[in-house]
């Protein structure tokens, strides 16, 4: 039998800027390759407060709750916090909160505050699950912590649903470009109402295990409706921090295929900075967005 030719994505594709073509060729024939409709501009909210953590990294939950309120108002444009949650979720929704359990876990304090916010619009605890079972949910909140990843470059928004696949090892290395297809699984598609990234204490090097030298107190939340736009901003923050640490260009390696592929191949949102409107709230020092 003739060996099937594998389309290898290489360093040269990145240097040439032909990544999209290379990803497209490498994914030819895979399921769910489809570009969907995307908004012309995607809003991403970056909310920071210097007081949200002390020097020992203890969370001030009052400040964190305020940050979340500010974030929700900015995302939705509603006049009250409850209205902002109700514009995204219904009272009878069964909500799955999808957190990062490993490497740089989502802070439990943030999860608890989100649960309280959902309670306040009438969603009871029994209908809120920190879950890896999307089929039991009518709505999902994608709530990873901001981090780089040694097999996929970035391991934040698009990668956060990897466990929904039931085959996480199938989405590493070159196959990380396919992470976007998980968002098209029938039990996942269309359910994500909010992307809320815990950027309180991110990890900018790839791991695979935490090295505290590459964590820093960004003290932020990054949120939006467009998962690709939010991941693009996350990528920008991580990349800028890495360059600052080394004092020279220190690109993520391997390069994060999944973000551009989520845009160009899977149509999940925009990775084009020109089409992302960033709104910053609060503490401005070392924003890492310029």
């Amino acid at each position: 039998m003739q060996k099937q030719k594998v389309n290898a994505i290489t360093r040269r594709d990145f240097i040439r800027g032909s990544l999209t073509a290379a990803i497209g060729a490498s994914l030819a024939g895979t399921k769910f390759v489809q570009a969907g409709e995307k908004p012309s501009v995607s809003n991403v909210i970056v909310t920071r407060n210097k007081a949200v953590m002390d020097n020992e990294l203890n969370i001030n939950t009052t400040v964190l709750a305020e940050m979340l309120d500010q974030t929700m108002l900015a995302i939705t444009g509603q006049k009250s916090v409850n209205e902002s949650w109700l514009s995204l979720f219904k009272k009878d929704d069964s909500v799955g909160i999808v957190t990062t359990p490993h490497l740089n876990p989502t802070h439990k304090e943030l999860v608890d505050i989100v649960k309280i916010s959902l309670n306040q619009i009438g969603i009871s605890d029994k209908n809120i699950k920190v879950s890896n079972k999307p089929e039991n949910c009518t709505a999902l909140i994608c709530m990873p912590a901001l981090k780089a990843h040694w097999l996929t470059g970035i391991g934040t928004v698009i990668k956060n649903y990897i466990m929904f696949s039931g085959r996480p090892r199938d989405y590493h290395n070159q196959d990380s470009a396919k992470l976007g297809e998980i968002w098209h699984l029938p039990e996942v598609k269309g359910k994500t109402k909010l992307i809320l990234v815990d950027a309180l204490h991110p990890l900018c090097d790839k791991g695979p295990q935490v090295d505290p030298r590459y964590k820093w107190a960004y003290k932020g939340l990054i949120a939006g409706i467009d998962p690709v736009a939010v991941d693009t901003i996350c990528l920008k923050i991580i990349s800028t921090k890495r360059d600052l640490i080394k004092g020279e260009s220190w690109p993520l390696s391997p390069p994060p295929l999944c973000v551009e592929a989520a845009d160009k191949v899977y149509g999940l949102g925009t990775s084009d900075f020109k089409n992302i409107k960033i709104q910053t709230i609060g503490w401005k020092e070392d924003l890492l967005l310029s």
């Binding site: 290898a8 290489t10 070159q174 390696s253």
Partner: peptide, 15 residues
């Protein structure tokens, strides 16, 4: 090759 890629990206395949 995964370790190599984490230091100097060559390809996602084991060339």
């Amino acid at each position: 090759y995964m370790v190599l890629n984490s230091l100097f990206y060559l390809s996602h395949q084991n060339l």
